[in-house]
Design a protein around this nucleic acid. Structure first.
Length: 417
DNA sequence: GTTGAGCGTT
């Protein structure tokens, strides 16, 4: 067996003596990927175990050459400057590319980088990257595997999660549409679901698999539809929570598949991924306030999001059961109030609010502010509800939940989702 | 058939 020396990038071997690893690893395997090596007799430069042979005349330096690295999952809006400024923290960059549609100039959501230093490449390959609010994967091109081990993989649905003001909780804005029929096109789904809120993206796997994903700009819209059956093109589809794509289900709850090196939301970059493929820009934040990343309150919330995995999983489990009880009070209104991603009060409000009804307001569609956050303790009546969203009715006017503190979370969690 | 793909105009 061999593994890469994290310091040098070179392979280190585990010696076998009488078919046992010698010396024994004594329970410490570290975060390395171990590769089984089989003997090949006609390899002169290496030992018969396929490892570097220190006594060989020629050093195998070619293993340490940098190659182009593909960056998958880039936000549509990310530019080469964005990518460069992000990745340069690993080392000198020789090349940065964002691949775009030649005609429209629209990013294809991936790009390439090349480091000058192999150490930088290794480091970069060994982790996942949060760029402008999305988790991005860096790989050797056309190599199926990711450069980093599975246990570092965050649920990809992070990209579809939104902060729930005052509740230390996240909600998915993506829903799973089951029982789709083959004649339902992405356009069909988009136009149907646009009746409920702005649709950022529709995904239909090919070949036909009888399901689809719809991503809304507003997580409340997504959540409100979950559990419902709708008739589209004469067929009854079922709407439910979109489960994370790459969530390690065996570990859910106990170990969590969550990244050890980056706390949940630690980058504080929310809102960066708005505006899906070909859609009208999702307008979070009114005039002048487009970028939530610069919002002190949200950054602070990001910090509050560094929960332990069990808590996060517990929150997810609660959410998946429709556990609205954990959420702070929410008002749903049409049209919003005079624009702004307005955070009207200072950051000291973040994360507190047991009992005093943290409040969140969102608005449907429309110009004007969405995601307005009115920090503080006065319950402000909802803007006139109605407007065809009957299912929201019950939320208005209720007292803020006092259970948002979360101290009581943490018991056994499900692998739900 | 109810839980997702994407790999480079040189």
């Amino acid at each position: 067996m061999k593994y890469r020396n994290p310091e040098t990038g070179g392979f280190r071997g585990l010696r076998l003596v009488e078919n046992r690893i010698h010396p024994p690893p004594e329970g410490i395997w570290g975060n390395n990927i171990y590769v089984a090596v089989f003997p090949k007799e006609q390899n002169k430069r290496k030992g018969e175990d396929g490892l570097e042979n220190p006594s060989a005349k020629t050093k195998r330096v070619d293993r340490q050459k940098c190659s182009d690295l593909i960056v998958l999952g880039l936000p549509w809006k990310s530019t080469e400057e964005d990518i460069r400024s992000y990745f340069s923290k690993f080392g000198e960059l020789l090349m940065v590319q964002v691949k775009r549609d030649v005609k429209t100039g629209q990013s294809k959501g991936f790009g390439f980088v090349r480091f000058g230093d192999y150490e930088a490449q290794l480091k970069c390959l060994s982790q996942r990257h949060m760029i402008d609010g999305r988790w991005c994967d860096v790989r050797i091109p056309n190599s199926k595997a990711m450069g980093y081990p599975d246990h570092l993989v965050e649920p990809n649905s992070y990209n579809d999660m939104c902060l729930q003001e005052g509740s230390q909780q996240q909600m998915s804005r993506k829903v799973f549409i089951g029982r789709c029929t083959e004649d339902m096109t992405a356009d069909d789904l988009r136009s149907y679901f646009s009746n409920f809120g702005e649709v950022l993206d529709v995904f239909i796997p090919k070949p036909f698999r009888a399901f689809a994903f719809v991503t809304f700009s507003d997580p409340e819209v997504a959540q409100s539809l979950c559990g419902e059956d709708h008739i589209i093109k004469g067929a009854s589809v079922h709407i439910s929570n979109a489960a994370p794509k790459s969530y390690d289900k065996q570990r859910a709850g106990s170990q969590g598949g969550f990244s050890p090196n980056q706390g949940f939301g630690s980058q504080g970059n929310w809102g960066g991924s708005m505006g899906g493929k070909g859609s009208q820009q999702g307008n979070m934040g009114g005039p002048g306030g487009g970028n939530m990343a610069n919002n002190p309150l949200l950054n602070n919330l990001g910090a509050a999001f560094q929960l332990n995995p069990a808590m996060v999983a517990a929150a997810q489990a609660a959410l998946s059961q429709g556990g609205w009880g954990l959420l702070g009070m929410m008002n749903q209104g049409q049209g919003g109030q005079g624009g702004s991603a307005g955070v009207n009060q200072g950051q000291q409000q973040a994360g507190q609010g047991s009992g005093d009804g943290n409040q969140m307001q969102t608005s449907q569609g429309g110009q004007g502010g969405s995601f307005g956050n009115l920090a503080g303790s006065t319950n402000q009546p909802a803007t006139q509800s109605g407007g065809g969203f009957g299912s929201f009715g019950g939320w208005n006017g209720s007292q803020g939940s006092s259970e948002t503190q979360g101290g009581s979370w943490g018991g056994q969690t499900k692998s739900g989702w």
